[in-house]
């Protein structure tokens, strides 16, 4: 434990007693800040706006979260790929089963000319 130092302690006391007082100008500046920042009585509390959200998060909520949205996207892309690309593995399997069939999504030119 350090011994008390009467000279240093006396200096500290002088410093405490000599602490500056705020000037009128400083008090005026502080008062102006306080008035500007003070919430107004009767004013509804500032509502905290929700953080802006992207469309992906909105869709995800609709389809049960991001997992649901990912599953739905995968199923849609897979179906489109199978329909358009007709992978060899899939067509070979349907040929083997004898259930191969094709369908035209657009009517032929002859059908259009015949007015069908």
């Amino acid at each position: 434990m350090m011994q008390d130092d009467p000279d240093l302690d006396g200096l500290f006391k002088q410093a405490a007693a000599a602490a500056p007082l705020p000037s009128a100008q400083l008090l005026a500046r502080v008062a102006a800040d306080a008035a500007r920042e003070q919430p107004r009585p009767g004013t509804p509390e500032r509502a905290k706006a929700p953080a802006p959200r992207g469309w992906a998060f909105v869709l995800a909520d609709v389809f049960g979260g991001t997992g649901g949205l990912a599953g739905l996207t995968f199923a849609a892309v897979s179906g489109l790929w199978i329909g358009v690309a007709q992978p060899a593995a899939l067509s070979g399997w349907t040929d083997y089963l004898g259930v191969s069939a094709s369908m035209e999504l657009l009517p032929s030119d002859a059908a259009l000319l015949a007015g069908e």
């Binding site: 602490a19 007082l21 705020p22 400083l26 008090l27 502080v30 008062a31 306080a34």
Partner: peptide, 10 residues
Amino acid sequence: TARLAPRALG
């Protein structure tokens, strides 16, 4: 302000 400004300033 009267309470805190002198302490902060000192």
